[in-house]
Amino acid sequence: MVVGVLIVGLWWLVAHNAGSGWVQVLGDLVFGALLIGIAGPFVVATRALVTMRSAPGDGIAGRPVEVRVESRSRVRVRPVDPPGPEAFVGPTGRRGAVDGAITLVPLRRGVHHAVTLEIASAAPFGLQWWTKRLQLPLPAALHVSPRCGSAQPVPLRPDEGTGDVLDRPRSDVGLPRGVRPYVPGDARRLVHWRSTAHAGHVMVRELEQPAGEPVTITVELPEDREAAERVAEGALASVVGLLEGGVPVLLGTREPSGPVLAAVADRRGAGRRLARAVHGPGGATSAEREGAWR
């Protein structure tokens, strides 16, 4: 913009002292183009209406998360929080698609209820970019789980090593107890086809819950963000390792609402819990544990 003002000023000085009307007329045209090239994007960026169209509920720190936004005018969008590479959204022509994908690359775990975007435009001449910050609420909170770090050693149970317990059973295996109607979330391989054919709707096998004693992992995040990230990564690795080994896990964390101790069934659940976790001691007391089980 400064360069544009300098060009116009210098041009007018030369035109005015050269005594030629055509030079001044050309200078007027250059001024008009520069003015619209500078002020036009300001208007476009100010009036740009960007709305959130869809976004996933889960993500992993350091991994790209794609959300779809919509804009009636062509704008450059750069995610600021969580950060991400810039992309262009908006119609490329008269009948072009108004929506487009932008990629978020969250650096740390956390829960995002909104994304902060930097909207920029240089329309109509591409001479000057004007930007504005915009906070768009997400349709559902985006839980960014920590990366899967190095698993911490889990303390041995008293009976381990004696030969009485060779392996922990998987949480989704057990003795069939009966069949029940399908509810969302049930594994496909538990569908009982014969009962389904008989009942007319999908039935699944109901299994006995594993009898194993759950492992309680209490996560106490330090105040330092980086250190807390590392602790969360390690905790997630431990939880995932235990779950893959078939061990039920009780995860104790401190969330903004207070300490929470609850069972986690899979990586996603553990990731969400750790995404919500804040600095402070986790919920490991017996009272909390009781409450959690309830």
């Binding site: 183009a33 090239g37 062509r74 450059r76 262009f88 908006g90 119609p91 490329t92 022509g93 008269r94 072009g96 240089a122 329309a123 109509p124 001449f125 591409g126 001479l127």
Partner: peptide
């Protein structure tokens, strides 16, 4: 100038 914007915006046409 309009083509400059088209090019800068990844194909956005006025």
């Amino acid at each position: 100038l309009t083509e400059m914007w088209t090019s800068a915006s990844g194909g956005g046409r006025i």
